[in-house]
Write a protein that binds this DNA or RNA. Sequence first.
DNA 1: CATGAATGAGCTTTCATTCAT
DNA 2: AATGAATGAAAGCTCATTCAT
Lengths: 205, 205, 205, 205
Amino acid sequence: MTTERLPTEQRQRQIAEAALRIVAEHGVHRLTAAALAAEVGIADGTIFRHFRNKEEIVHAAIDLFEKALESTFPPPTEDPLERLGSFMVGRLELVREHPEFLRLAFNDRLAEAAGEKGAHRIEGLVGRSVAFVRQCLEEAQNRGQVTREAPPMLLVWMVIGVIRGAATGGPLLATVEKDLPGASPTQVWKALERFLRNTTTEKKT
Amino acid sequence: MTTERLPTEQRQRQIAEAALRIVAEHGVHRLTAAALAAEVGIADGTIFRHFRNKEEIVHAAIDLFEKALESTFPPPTEDPLERLGSFMVGRLELVREHPEFLRLAFNDRLAEAAGEKGAHRIEGLVGRSVAFVRQCLEEAQNRGQVTREAPPMLLVWMVIGVIRGAATGGPLLATVEKDLPGASPTQVWKALERFLRNTTTEKKT
Amino acid sequence: MTTERLPTEQRQRQIAEAALRIVAEHGVHRLTAAALAAEVGIADGTIFRHFRNKEEIVHAAIDLFEKALESTFPPPTEDPLERLGSFMVGRLELVREHPEFLRLAFNDRLAEAAGEKGAHRIEGLVGRSVAFVRQCLEEAQNRGQVTREAPPMLLVWMVIGVIRGAATGGPLLATVEKDLPGASPTQVWKALERFLRNTTTEKKT
Amino acid sequence: MTTERLPTEQRQRQIAEAALRIVAEHGVHRLTAAALAAEVGIADGTIFRHFRNKEEIVHAAIDLFEKALESTFPPPTEDPLERLGSFMVGRLELVREHPEFLRLAFNDRLAEAAGEKGAHRIEGLVGRSVAFVRQCLEEAQNRGQVTREAPPMLLVWMVIGVIRGAATGGPLLATVEKDLPGASPTQVWKALERFLRNTTTEKKT
DNA sequence: CATGAATGAGCTTTCATTCAT
DNA sequence: AATGAATGAAAGCTCATTCAT
């Protein structure tokens, strides 16, 4: 069989994308050179003309993931809650477009496949998002938009929990899917925002 | 070397526990027949005198996990928030005692090792917990202990998010560990409870 | 195919011997797990139940080689030339019995297959033999059995050259094989000894 | 990157030389098409525009080696010992200039890489040198320059042994390097010559 | 029940060789 | 002539599973 010849960069991209798809759909244990090759439509051995080894493939996949996440960090607007909102909506839309990412973001599969270094990268990615959320929430607390009584991390966990929950089409919603059936990212954020503001101490006085 | 002969039931339990430990500490890729045998202290072939194949071992491990989770569902007390509190405290304490479970609960590793059927079981386990949390929250909303404005699932995701966050010693806290340093399960719940109730004060006044 | 089951120690020995045979007869490039397995009569994978990896197999082979060489170091008799004679005869007889060793002793094939550590071991083996020969010759010079005029290493190289030459059935003799047709180890040594003593300065005076 | 285009003959030479260098410095296992191409500075596929396959490359390398050896056969002078001397000095100087050759001459690595045919060629090369040495020594014996009592092959082995020993900087000298520290080729030959002639003095008196 | 040797499929990686560009 | 992507046959090694003892 003679496959179309493509420049390395293109093949690398194809392979990285295939890796993402495979891990997301079937799990790391199916991320084999053979599976990758089949997915891309080339011969087994050819994989290693484009990547030195499997680990590098995973790193390329993480790159893709990273770039996608990066694009959802909103510009530093004035209002922290507004910022948090764009972030959340962005993330939820990202997941809607790329369901592959879902199982990656909240899962340490990729990390496992990438060895120590890859695990750290993913940790870093997650950490950055957490830090962003926290930053927004603390600012909001300082401005009195959100109650100062709650420990910031509690709020962070809640927000992350909502993102995760709204993003997961899977298990979390399985039993209760009828609830917010097609709840759009914006709707979810609106509900969350109202809730957060609701608790504001200012309002109580 | 001839190991002491034990009845199948005991060996099965030992093996299932060993499986839990191995997956938790080293990941699925180290869950091999040889590793299990070594952990239990028997010869590798012997494993298959007690289980027909690896999948069954994983199922036994999930059984253990299930039983542990089961034990944290509190008795059906009157007050739904109180019930939710015992549940949450129970779960956090469980994780504190058995850190192995952490990587299992919020991770689909075990599911992956157990094939389709195992994945469904874990999904079910998670689903049951979600349903419980939801039940408590809806009751609380009906009683006016928690604002009725928020969609129940939003609250569910928040609570689950807090449980996950408080349970995970790892990445989530990494950058901000000073926050709730040794926050005990009860302290976490108290903070969450105050927050949940807080949202209703407006209406009360 | 069901092969006879043997205890690891026996299989290890078989495998190490097979390794020696293969390297000697066909060269390192044919020393593959498959070839070893075929030679021993077991399945490919089985090889690695008895050795952790190929390198360990080569080390086991070197062990065999080492033991054989060791056995040809004669006891420390009074007369150095007599000692040298037993050594040489021993070595030649060893090679006659185990032609496999020939290509190993004067070849760095095994060394190459064994990695750094293996190469050093073989170097050490050769070094020990050289040192032994040298020791004998220097003593002989001190006693006046061999001329003191020749630098010791010159004599060493000569003796080693004769051992190698007499041992090699191969290329070295190819063109001139009729010479010392069945020259027995003892005959070769006798000829060499006469030659060495012949040069003695004592006799000239 | 497009490399300068060179006529096949030049590239062939470059490749053959690269082969010699690689085998000498790193061993046959590194003699790969990719390594050759890198050494020469062309793309790996290009190698096979100049040689039909790897075996032919090795043959070209042996050609080079052969030519170098050829050049050290001295003209047929009157005195056989003098002839032998030039030969030996020539060989030792060759090795000093081209240390690559060392590992080739006393090693069947190249032979192994070249298959049956290549092995025979190298055998022939060695055989020719042995025959030359023998010729010289027999003449010398006939002229009474060297004792007639020693079987010619014994002398041949000795001489070859000395050449090998003096050429090998490696293991052979490792333990005793102080001996003939920078022993020049001529010094080595002088020592050997004195020794060979020495054996005849008895009869002369 | 327990042992541990044996199996064979499968995985990652290497490499000589081909061939479209 | 030169390039470099593609191929496919090994090679080394792992592991679930079987089975004679």
